[in-house]
Nucleic acid binder design. Structure first.
Lengths: 200, 200
DNA sequence: AGCATATTTCATCATCTGATGAAACTACTC
DNA sequence: GAGTAGTTTCATCAGATGATGAAATATGCT
């Protein structure tokens, strides 16, 4: 007998934080659509109703646990961080910046990555973020007055290269890419982004 | 009154094919985990039990509708198709070959792509296919006797670039990449794969 | 002490999921 | 025409899911 869980607060435990942490893990494992609130509750060792007590629903939980954490700051500062310095090394700086952000927030970034595919909303957000906020600004900054089609192509190819690197390293875990030293990747992939952003 | 659906065969309709087609569409929209057999049945305008009548279960349906169709033939022939020709244009041929296969089987390929993220099994299969069957062979063929680490890195980077292109074009639909003419992509991305596979 | 507030659990809903067995129906063979 | 095999629908199951409202408990305030 006895194993009935007592109700009421448990001292010294930050349940909300535990739920957030568990949610990040679940979203990172299976993506938005396949993650269940009950699964999150189970992973957090908590009653499912508690998840609803702290968050409005699945959308809100995803926003709080993943999206808010994935961004290190305002997008514009990311873009300008990439732009700052010599034109010949934009590519290197871009890869270095991204890898830095990704590695530092690995699990929430992985969750975001896995959710691109399951949720059209997330896909749209990532598309707009990458093309408008980041690479669009960078390309326009490097070469103002470029016609729209060429600008989109350059920004898109750079974004695709970045996504490929992310997918290969965190989702598919390609040997050689998943276990490479970050700076190795910067040296190899940097010139590629450079070529996309500022052809010859 | 009247609206009860009659049982028994419907002449002239290939129901199994309709289910396969609907399944491909659903898997392509939301990936393996988020696709339900009932959703497939609904999309095919068919009773859910019929899906079970024709297929063993979700795994089987996925295998029949997506996996079997995604491969144009034995992997080895894909690899040799890429190798055939001048060394200086392996990159171009690789991108051209892949884009050709993808465009021709777009919806089943999209389903595969979306399922990489939701199913660890699919991810493993894709990883092994890309690194061992395709780019592993290509790199080894181009430069035999390369040490394992370097071979994995080159193959992995090439695979990552290909996946990025696929994600950008079919899943995230980056403007500039999603709507580009295939040959434009070949011309821009080809040199990148070339650089990964055969550095300088 | 007593009271208010926030936290946690329980019980329950309607809905969806994959799955199965049986019944109705059609088309074909003899 | 009777019978058989294959196709389709229906009824139903157990389990999971998102969600809600109410009860129980602990903590902090006065």
């Amino acid at each position: 007998m006895g194993a009935e869980a007592r109700r009421g607060p448990r001292r010294g435990e930050d349940t909300r934080a535990a739920i957030l942490e568990a949610a990040r893990g679940e979203f990172a494992r299976t993506g938005y659509a396949a993650t269940s609130l009950r699964g999150v509750a189970r992973a957090a060792g908590v009653d499912p109703a508690l998840v609803h007590h702290y968050f409005e629903g699945k959308d809100d939980l995803f926003a709080q646990s993943v999206v808010l954490v994935s961004l290190p700051g305002p997008p514009a500062s990311l873009a300008s961080q990439v732009m700052e310095g010599s034109r010949e090394e934009v590519g290197l700086r871009a890869v270095r910046t991204f890898l830095g952000v990704w590695e530092a927030r690995r699990s929430s970034f992985e969750a975001l990555l896995r959710s691109i595919v399951t949720s059209e909303e997330v896909a749209r957000a990532v598309r707009e973020f990458l093309t408008q906020e980041i690479f669009g600004r960078v390309v326009s900054g490097l070469e103002p007055g470029l016609e729209e089609q060429e600008r989109d192509l350059r920004a898109g190819l750079a974004a695709a290269a970045a996504m490929g690197l992310a997918m290969g390293r965190y989702v598919v875990r390609l040997p050689g890419v998943a276990d490479a030293d970050p700076e190795t990747l910067v040296q190899r992939v940097g010139p590629v982004l450079q070529g996309y952003l500022l052809p010859r």
